[in-house]
């Protein structure tokens, strides 16, 4: 099995050639987590970006002692990408719902590309912006729906 087939479909590597993806990922590690293990803890600081290879994980936000399930991550989904924008403090818990294998690569591997392979670096940055824009759109939709619900309730 090739490295490429593992990360096939991951939006971060969209439009990047296979051999370039292999170069980026060649020094990465794969961490295995058991069910209910914390992959990332809210408030911790870290510089790793993760891609789920197998299994499922939940994004949970702790606020005022309350744990809120935000979304479920499946195979191929990416998390921790905010460290690329210098947001090194984790903003949510990522908890394994099943046994999970997670591909982990440090932000250094990303920044090294700036001098070594600027084209790939810019494509990664573009993909990251696309990803964040997509999430922002989803967040906007949720906010709009919520405000509509609230105004209906108020009326």
């Amino acid at each position: 099995m090739s490295i490429i087939s593992l990360v096939k479909g991951c939006p971060l590597f969209h439009e990047i050639y296979d051999h370039e993806v292999e170069k980026i990922l060649k020094n990465c590690v794969v961490a295995s987590f058991k069910k209910d293990d914390h992959i990332i803890k809210q408030g911790d600081s870290g510089t790793d970006i993760c891609i789920i290879l197998t299994g499922e994980a939940s994004i949970i936000v702790n606020k005022d002692g309350e744990r809120k399930h935000i979304a479920t991550l499946n195979s191929g989904d990416l998390f921790g990408e905010m460290v690329l924008l210098n947001e090194t403090q984790r903003t949510a818990d990522i908890v394994a719902r099943t046994n999970c294998d997670v591909l982990v690569f440090g932000q250094d591997a990303f920044y090294e590309l700036y001098s070594k392979s600027p084209q790939v670096f810019s494509l990664l940055a573009l993909n990251l912006s696309r990803l964040i824009t997509k999430r922002l759109k989803q967040a906007n939709k949720i906010i709009t729906d919520l405000s509509e619900t609230l105004s209906k309730k108020a009326a």
Binding site: I3, V29, V30, A31, D37, I39, V102
Partner: peptide, 10 residues
């Protein structure tokens, strides 16, 4: 990382 096991991608 608090992981059960870590191996290189290769």
């Amino acid at each position: 990382m608090g992981a059960n096991q870590v191996v290189s991608l290769r």
